[in-house]
């Protein structure tokens, strides 16, 4: 039999945010004359959908339609401070900053609308469809656009808000070693099934089954995108990708896309997953980060599945076919040597 199957599991406890010298993301919101609100951030959307999630959060916090939110993440030179889109911190940090800024801007919006409607700001409520109503008086309302026009042209006010999502620096307790480095933690368990061809060393990932505990989802489609894309990326890291192939010559570095190994569309395994929404205490609406965690646990799960299949623990990635063949050869050689007293983990070989 040259093909052997195995199953592997990995479980992860993944921090959201980092213990930098304080970890801030700031947001600014202001209204245009058309009743749109611009959310200015320096947090970068690199395809994960941060702008979409921030627009949703801003719309919810402002009480206006999501179509009226413009998220501007143009320029880290001129925008409000953000430490960066990393450590799975984007939705958590920027989301908190946006809510904070929206609260301030919403207060101004209600004050402006109150003056136009001759009511107390505390008696007003936005309906989320672009209008602000006086509670208990359904015929007394003003559109958000009219309120914005009134602020700009009649009341001479800016409708704006400033916000920050901030985690102060946590110093290590010299006595106990205790510290509080992150903002919340997400969790996942990933199970993979692989088939290893012991003649070519090739590993085929058959299935990836996962459960992700990630707090409240802001946008399930974005979460789906991260998980599916992350599973593929994790497989790519486990089996294919390296800029430093282990051959001795510098000339063997990949010089083009064609020389950089990646799995293609037909190598994508069957991916199934469930999401558990257990809200965090610190994130906006109970959000935790999912980004990086989608790509990391598939890697040990695949390596463990390879061990289950062939009985050899591989300790480097990517697990190229050559790595598998060499590991099998080493194993064979060592098992042919006279037995030594050794407590071998697993005991898969006779």
């Amino acid at each position: 039999m040259s093909k052997r199957r195995g199953t592997g599991l990995a479980t992860v406890n993944y921090p959201t945010g980092m213990n930098l010298g304080g970890d801030p993301t700031q947001a600014l919101i202001h209204s245009t004359t058309t009743g749109n609100f611009v959310v200015t951030l320096s947090s970068t959307d690199l395809g994960q959908g941060l702008k979409t999630a921030m627009a949703q959060i801003a719309a919810d916090a402002m009480g206006v339609p999501v179509d009226n939110i413009i998220v501007d993440t143009g320029d880290t030179d001129t925008g409000p401070h953000c430490m960066g889109t990393f450590a799975s911190r984007g939705t958590h940090r920027a989301g908190n900053a946006v809510i904070d800024a929206a609260d301030e801007a919403r207060d101004v919006l209600m004050e402006v609308a109150a003056e136009e409607l001759e009511a107390a700001p505390s008696d007003l409520e936005p309906d989320g469809d672009g209008n602000i109503h006086v509670l208990g008086a359904p015929d007394r309302s003003i559109s958000v656009m009219d309120a914005a026009m009134a602020a700009h042209f009649e009341q001479g006010r800016t409708i704006s808000g400033r916000g920050i999502g901030f985690k102060p620096k946590s110093d290590v307790d010299p006595e106990t070693g205790e510290m509080d480095p992150d903002s919340t933690e997400a969790h996942a368990t990933v199970v993979t099934e692989v088939e290893v061809d012991t003649e070519t060393g090739e590993v085929d990932v058959l299935t990836v089954k996962a459960v992700y505990e990630i707090g409240q989802m802001v946008n399930p489609a974005l979460v789906d995108g991260q998980i599916i894309g992350g599973a593929w990326m994790g497989m790519a890291h486990a089996l294919y990708e390296t800029t430093d192939p282990y051959y001795p010559d510098i000339d063997h570095k990949p010089g083009s896309f064609g020389e950089y190994s990646l799995p293609g569309p037909s190598e994508v395994p069957d991916i199934e997953y469930e999401v558990l929404e257990i809200p965090s205490q610190t994130g906006p609406y109970g959000v935790k980060g999912i980004g990086e965690m989608s790509a990391t646990p598939p890697i040990p799960a695949i390596v463990n599945a390879i061990k289950d299949a062939i009985g050899v623990q591989i300790t480097e990635i990517p697990v190229t076919p050559e790595v598998v063949l060499r590991a099998l050869e080493d194993e064979k050689e060592s098992s042919e040597e006279p037995p030594v007293a050794e407590n071998r983990d697993g005991g898969d070989e006779p």
């Binding site: 063997h252 020389e259 190994s261 076919p321 050559e322």
Partner: peptide, 12 residues
Amino acid sequence: EDAIASAWYRRK
């Protein structure tokens, strides 16, 4: 021998 495979592996 290149970024995709070593001579050792290709021979096999």
